[in-house]
Amino acid sequence: MSKELNEKKAIVTGADGPLAAAAADVLEAAGATVERIDTGAALAEACRGAIETLGGVDILVTHSSPATDGPAAELHEIAAGPWNEAIDRHATSVFTAIQTVAPAMQASGGGRIVNLTTARAHSCADQHGVAELLVHGFTVGFARELGGDGVTVNAVEVGAILAIGDERGPDPYPNRAVARAGTATDPAALVELLAGPGGEWISGQVFTVDGGGWMRPD
């Protein structure tokens, strides 16, 4: 049976987290072969190893699971250690993964990169949010650089309850337009679209998937 992502080779980082795990699952269900890398792995080495195992790479989904983050700190008080760790875990890691994977995609004539971030990037209320905002910057920058080689780069920013991996508690945003809390699988259909043939002319975008928690008119 022909599936949309048959024979596609995918790398998913941060796959120990529920968001990236759900993304990996949906890519597999669509026919892709997926190499899963956990949060905190040495990404340059791990991505090179995954490309070797797969025999190439068509899709990269980046994520860094918030589940193993240190506590959020108010920015005017945060210490150097947790600040630098957040930048490393959530921003530099994504930069490293894309830098490692992009040349293989460019050489093979195309690819799809989807960066999974959380609504923390929106408020920037703590160190993790600022780090994830940098990922949105990388998304636009890499999209511009790689588009000529057929590589698209987008970000999917996912609503708050998913960010802490707790899908059972009450919805912290009662004002959400869609009146229920999100689950890890809610963004998966968008990831599949962006990773597949339908994503060919979509690049450099940050999509918010949060049940209409934060809405914008333009």
């Binding site: 920037c124 209320a125 949010g129 600022v130 905002l133 940098l134 910057g137």
Partner: peptide, 27 residues
């Protein structure tokens, strides 16, 4: 440049906008 980041300079300048929001919140 932070509105359409191209390189490491404009990516960090986008981060400065995030720091601004976060510090405005906490202070």
């Amino acid at each position: 440049g932070a509105d359409q980041p191209r390189n490491q300079y404009s990516v960090t300048k986008l981060g400065v906008q995030g720091l601004t929001l976060g510090l405005a919140r906490s202070l």
